Amino acid sequence: MKGKVVSYLAAKKYGFIQGDDGESYFLHFSELLDKKDEGKLVKGSMVHFDPTPTPKGLAAKAISLPLE
C-alpha cells in the first residue's frame, strides 16, 4: 500500500503514516527495509508498506521509500 508520513519522531524511532485507504498506521524504524532511508522519513514523504493489524491497532510493516 502507498501512504504519506504524517509524523516521525527520530529520537524515539516511531511515527505515523496515513494510508491511501485513509487509515492511520504506526510506523517504527525497525520496519524500514533500508535503514539509510531514515533521514527521508519526514512529514509528507511518500512510502510503500504492508498494512498489518496488531493487537494495538494498525501497523506499517516492510516500509520502503519510492525510487527517486
Rank of each mutant, 00 (worst) to 15 (best):
M1Y: 05
M1I: 10
K2I: 10
K2A: 11
K4G: 04
K4H: 13
V5F: 01
V5C: 03
V5I: 12
V5K: 02
V6G: 05
V6P: 02
S7K: 14
Y8N: 02
Y8K: 02
Y8S: 02
A10D: 05
A10N: 08
A10K: 14
A10P: 14
A10G: 08
A10M: 11
A10V: 13
A11E: 12
A11M: 10
A11L: 11
A11S: 13
K12M: 10
K12D: 06
K12F: 11
K13N: 05
K13A: 05
K13Y: 04
K13C: 07
K13M: 05
K13V: 03
Y14V: 05
Y14R: 05
G15W: 03
G15V: 02
G15C: 03
F16D: 02
F16P: 00
I17R: 00
I17H: 01
Q18L: 14
G19N: 03
G19A: 05
G19V: 03
G19I: 02
D20Y: 09
D20A: 10
D20T: 09
D20L: 09
D20G: 05
D21I: 02
D21P: 00
D21K: 03
D21F: 03
D21T: 04
D21M: 03
G22M: 06
E23H: 14
E23P: 03
S24Q: 14
S24K: 15
S24I: 15
Y25P: 01
F26A: 03
F26W: 08
F26R: 03
F26Q: 03
F26H: 04
F26P: 01
F26D: 02
F26Y: 09
L27Y: 09
L27P: 01
L27K: 00
L27D: 00
L27M: 12
F29N: 04
F29R: 09
F29Y: 14
S30H: 09
S30D: 10
S30R: 10
S30N: 13
S30E: 09
E31A: 12
E31K: 05
E31T: 04
L32V: 04
L32H: 02
L32D: 01
L33V: 13
L33A: 06
L33Y: 05
D34G: 03
D34V: 08
K35W: 08
K35V: 08
K35Y: 08
K36N: 14
K36M: 11
D37T: 07
D37Q: 11
D37S: 09
D37R: 04
G39F: 13
G39K: 14
K40Y: 09
K40P: 02
K40G: 06
L41K: 01
L41W: 01
L41E: 01
L41N: 01
L41I: 07
L41H: 01
V42H: 12
V42L: 10
K43S: 10
K43I: 10
K43V: 12
K43T: 10
K43D: 05
K43Y: 12
G44K: 03
S45D: 03
S45N: 10
S45I: 15
M46E: 12
M46A: 12
V47P: 00
V47H: 00
V47M: 03
V47I: 07
V47F: 02
V47C: 03
H48Y: 14
H48Q: 13
H48P: 01
F49T: 00
F49L: 01
D50S: 15
D50L: 15
D50E: 13
D50W: 15
D50H: 15
P51T: 06
P51R: 07
P51Q: 04
P51G: 09
T52C: 13
T52V: 14
P53L: 15
P53E: 13
P53S: 14
T54H: 08
T54L: 06
T54S: 08
T54D: 06
P55R: 10
P55I: 10
P55A: 11
K56Y: 12
K56S: 09
K56T: 09
G57D: 01
G57Q: 03
G57C: 04
G57W: 03
G57E: 02
L58Y: 09
A59D: 04
A59H: 10
A59F: 10
A59N: 06
A60K: 00
K61Y: 09
K61M: 10
K61W: 08
K61G: 07
K61E: 04
A62F: 10
A62I: 05
I63M: 03
I63Q: 01
I63C: 04
I63S: 00
S64I: 12
S64G: 09
S64M: 11
S64F: 14
S64C: 10
L65Y: 05
L65Q: 05
L65H: 04
L65V: 15
L65I: 13
L65A: 07
P66A: 15
P66G: 14
P66H: 15
P66W: 15
L67I: 12
L67Y: 13
L67F: 13
L67V: 13
L67R: 13
L67D: 13
L67M: 12
E68D: 12
E68Q: 14
